[in-house]
């Protein structure tokens, strides 16, 4: 009885889904020539570069380490360029000690930022110089102010940006260097496509039109300390991507460095476990017959 009900239920589900398959197939039939495209492709589907070019950082891979000089340069780019619009709310000034700054330097950096505070005499909201325990302040008092200042687009917080996009730091680097004029092929193929007046063409951005104006426009926009590489747009983009890789996961290098001894111990323990298993099970093997 269960089997008869089972067969009926099975046929019901299978036939229903096949019905959906057939109705779908009928809908597709007129454009079967271009299987898989119900409508004309959109400009952003054709011209969007889905995969950012590879970016190699010293922190990559299971043996990666932080390039502290690069992280300091990246922090400088963030502070002098990105911080004008983007917050970094999960990073505290004290965390900067991990980039090789000493306590005094961190204090100075923190004091350079104005953070929200309360006037001790009047109790009114005001600002005060930051302390190492403070977090990076937002450049806007609230979201409405952020929208108002940026044509209705809120500049996202950058703390986790390197983990929140496919490609991570490579994506950030690609966006920073992916600006340019609309290609001629795009104008010919999609005459209707238009970057809105508040947008900027960027081939790595999913809609091809990003609200952020090109932030790094000229070599030497940030002046690096002596002995550091030349601050080309490429160099600054790479440095700030490396910095944001650190802000996204400050414990990344500690993680991979912890991994090796753990795996080493487990490998050793597993070999022992295998030998123990072999020895225990050897007792079960039938004794070989003595052949003459």
């Amino acid at each position: 009885m269960i089997r008869i009900f089972g067969i009926l239920a099975g046929l019901f589900f299978s036939l229903s889904v096949l019905w959906a398959f057939i109705s779908g197939a009928i809908a597709v039939a007129p454009v079967l020539g271009e299987y898989g495209q119900f409508t004309e492709p959109m400009a952003d589907k054709v011209f969007h570069e889905k995969h950012p070019p590879a970016l190699h950082l010293q922190s990559d891979g299971p043996f990666g380490t932080w390039d502290l000089a690069q992280l300091q340069r990246g922090f400088q780019v963030y502070k002098e360029v990105c911080a004008a619009c983007h917050s970094l709310k999960f990073v505290a000034f004290r965390d900067l000690e991990e980039l090789g700054y000493d306590k005094g330097q961190v204090k100075t950096i923190a004091a350079g930022f104005q953070v929200p505070g309360v006037d001790p005499n009047t109790g009114e909201a005001t600002t005060r110089p930051g302390m190492p325990t403070d977090y990076f302040p937002s450049p806007y008092p609230n979201e409405i102010a952020a929208k108002a200042a940026n044509n209705n687009a809120v500049p996202p917080d950058l703390s986790l940006m390197a983990k929140a996009r496919h490609g991570g730091p490579a994506y950030i680097h690609a966006i920073l260097t992916g600006y340019g004029p609309e290609p001629e092929a795009l104008k010919q193929q999609f005459p209707d496509f238009k970057v809105p007046s508040t947008g900027h063409y960027n081939k790595y951005f999913p809609s091809l039109a990003i609200a952020m104006p090109p932030p790094l426009t000229a070599e030497g926009q940030v002046s690096y300390a002596e002995g550091q590489p030349k601050p080309t747009i490429e160099q600054m983009s790479t440095d700030v991507s490396a910095f944001l890789e650190w802000t996204a996961e400050p414990k990344k290098v500690k993680r991979t460095q912890t991994g090796w001894p753990v795996l080493g111990f487990l490998l050793f323990a597993t070999i022992l476990a295998y030998l123990a298993k072999k020895q225990v099970w050897a007792a079960l093997k039938p004794k070989k017959k003595h052949t003459a």
Binding site: G6, I7, A9, G10, L11, F13, S14, L15, V17, L18, F21
Partner: peptide, 9 residues
Amino acid sequence: AYYFLHFLV
């Protein structure tokens, strides 16, 4: 379709 056919039929 095959999934339901497999288990139930």
